[in-house]
Design a protein around this nucleic acid. Structure first.
Lengths: 229, 229
DNA sequence: GACAACATACCAACTAGTCGGTATGTAGAT
DNA sequence: ATCTACATACCGACTAGTTGGTATGTTGTC
């Protein structure tokens, strides 16, 4: 796992790095922007089609750059995948760090606020709220260990970032034995990943919202059952 | 959605339909077995590599048949995918129907027994306990609506099969308002799908077991909080 | 002998990656 | 300041190999 902190699921924050389309033919993009555009294009394309079905040419077209630029920055499609997994972590970090609920006093409120925040993201086109690394790891876990490890690092960073608030809430409110902060953080991540899969099944976030709502109720019951201040 | 009942995640029940290997060269398999072998091979291969990364030749090799047999039974790779999604439902049905917990008196015991059963399946190689349709829908939801719908039907059949016991438990024990039987069944399925994604991340079922254990605690708390007989 | 169930040979399209080349910036010597 | 030398960023035609699918031949069964 990497040593940095947060991680996992940005939504429509792609607008920072404009994808193609805006690339008026003849007018070159500023030098040095190709790499970031390729990573953003990979996020968008893989979230929609999966990794294997996404071609290098498609990513280049979505990024508005040529194959020459692609292989200048990345030695292979695999290297892009790994860089994009790291980029996913970086892209998610500010989203969760800057969310309003992080400044709440009570750690349980922060945790519930985070779940509400995730709930509010379950809207719009499926490919805008689903997880890049969650999608990619399904195709790579058994065939490409470097990509698998990069996805693991991203998911792990998310769980590690969530754990301190959970631990603080446990310290304040108590919780049944054999519940750990990291274990509950992983459960949160699991429910979200499962919500994405179910959402893809119907191409609609309704079921996903239902399942995350169950998660929120669970967290409330878990901490409510213990002693309260 | 199809009208049949159960559905979703068989484990190592593949042994009914032997995959290749056993195909001693020169010794032909019994006529009429190719279709079932191709579907079983698709299950195994897609669970391991994903749909797009799986080639028709790989499926044929795993099934121990030739391409001619493949295209005799299926008009295209897409048609196999759809048939395999239906086959997944059929394959899961007897596993869950014959499990010992189904004969328990109390509906809540049956539900908890089912979760325990799912928990016990989280063992061995990742590709042996993960979900074929859950894997495939991630790659197909936006690009192939027929495959998406076939996966939806399979997941839906699972939830529909689980709902009656949940409803019965709700009738006996009560449950917070705005909890529905089908909604909770979908949550169970969500947690399982998320557990599979997390398991793929580390290529180890430990996290998956943890998250399903959280699910079991949630179900207990949900029904325990209401009035009990 | 006719039809279903296969097998074999083959092809057109596509894909990741290569390669020679151009455009743009930058550091140091004069 | 300006010129040279070099590095970095990017372009797009090309290739070797792969892929889904087809066309045709063979074998077993009723």
């Amino acid at each position: 796992m990497t040593t940095n902190q947060p991680p996992s699921i940005p939504a429509a924050a792609a607008r920072d790095v404009p994808l193609a389309g805006g690339g008026t033919p003849g007018v070159r993009a500023p030098r040095g922007s190709a790499r970031a555009k390729l990573i953003a294009a990979a996020h968008a394309t893989v979230r929609k089609q999966g990794y294997a079905a996404t071609t290098v040419d498609q990513i280049c077209a979505a990024a508005g750059v040529t194959k020459g630029a692609f292989f200048h920055h990345f030695a292979s499609k695999e290297e892009l995948a790994i860089a994009a997994a790291e980029g996913w972590t970086e892209r998610a970090r500010p989203m969760f760090e800057r969310a309003p609920h992080v400044s709440l006093e009570d750690p349980l409120d922060r945790l519930l606020g985070h779940i509400d925040f995730r709930l509010s993201m379950l809207d719009g086109p499926t490919e805008d709220y689903t997880c890049f690394v969650g999608t990619m790891v399904q195709e790579a876990y058994a065939t490409n260990d470097r990509i698998r490890a990069a996805c693991e690092a991203s998911i792990n960073a998310y769980c590690q970032a969530l754990a301190p608030d959970i631990q603080a809430a446990m310290d304040v409110y108590g919780v049944p034995e054999d519940v750990t902060a990291i274990g509950l953080a992983q459960h949160v991540q699991s429910v979200l990943q499962g919500a994405f899969v179910l959402a893809k099944t119907t191409n609609d976030p309704a079921i996903a919202r239902g399942t995350v709502t169950h998660l929120k109720r669970y967290v409330r019951m878990l901490f409510g059952a213990g002693s309260a201040p």
